[in-house]
Simulated scan of single mutants.
Amino acid sequence: MAYLQANHLHRMPEALKNIIKAISLDASEPRYFSEAQLYMSYASLTPEQLSTFLAEYGEMGKDVTDIQLMRIKLNLYNGDYDTAIGLLEQLQYHIKEGATFNPHVYWVDAHLQKGRALMDRAEYAGAEQAFLRAMEFPVNLEAERDSKTGIAHYYLGLNSKLAGNEEAAKEHFKAMVEYAPASGWGAGDFPELGYFKALASLELGGDKTEAEKGFRELIAEGENRLGTVKDGRHITVSVEESHTARKFLLEHELGRKDRRVSSYYIQGLGCLGLGDRDKAREYFTKAMEIDPMSIDAKYMLESLS
């Protein structure tokens, strides 16, 4: 019933109500938690609503990967990076055929933001260790690629600069400028790398006109992402194999939603690079209106406050 309501009848509140009822009746079925996570993602539940769900049902689904990832993301959103890192270190993630999500992205987010917080407190040695750990690949996450790790080079450079180590700063900024995104499963799509490359180039005395060109290209890329695209075939990785062939209509919608969020996020970065803080704030706010759990947009908004 919940599946039909969510995918065909567009009655998401009723679908959520029914899938949560199913969980309360049989919490041993991982698929129910996976479907609940899918519906909540589409419905753009707030952090407070997710916290309420986890408080009531999180213990029942503590061994379900989708629930573990939800808890990790909520801790990231709330700025509890050490807890998120601890949960990631305990997570036993197994890549399945059709998987589209790489949990290593959360590993990078947790360590980058922990490092930024330490750097803001002038705890440069601790910040450096956090940024370096962002580029590690723990075996339990079963990930060998994640292009978002490249951003750590920029923050290592900034941290070294603030610590007074100009030579190390130059090396890290150079590594950021020269960073080539990985390819293959898990590499991800992170156009924001262009933003950090441009910032690193400016730190090295690079041409300002070229950097501004890069920022404008980000804005153009963001605008293009608002255009129409063909649906891809998405498969929820944590359901039983007998269900993996289902074509989830909601996941197609989630793909379009993700493109809208990334569109506004990278347009915001482009505007920020060009010095238009008000316009950047507007774009980051739009991203969070679409997805209240958009962590990258949240971090940037906080940096503008």
Rank of each mutant, 00 (worst) to 15 (best):
G150E: 08
L4F: 07
M40A: 12
L38H: 08
E212H: 09
G194L: 04
G188R: 06
Y42F: 13
N75P: 06
I151A: 04
L87T: 05
Y179R: 13
G58L: 06
N18V: 12
A280G: 00
Y93E: 06
L69F: 08
K247V: 15
F196D: 10
L25E: 03
M119S: 14
L54V: 08
E166Q: 08
W185C: 11
I20L: 12
V139Y: 09
P47D: 03
G184V: 00
Q90P: 07
L16H: 00
D276Y: 03
I20T: 15
L156P: 05
I67F: 10
A280W: 00
S201I: 03
L274R: 02
I23Q: 01
N224I: 00
G255W: 03
Q113S: 14
M12E: 04
E302D: 10
A200T: 02
A22G: 02
V261R: 06
P292K: 03
D296N: 08
K286Y: 01
Y124T: 09
K21Y: 13
K21P: 01
H94M: 07
L250P: 01
R260N: 03
I67E: 05
K286Q: 05
A27T: 01
G275Q: 00
S51G: 15
K161L: 14
S24Q: 14
V177R: 06
S242K: 09
R121E: 07
M300W: 05
A27D: 12
R225E: 04
E59W: 09
A125I: 05
V108E: 10
G222C: 06
D82A: 14
L87E: 12
N159C: 09
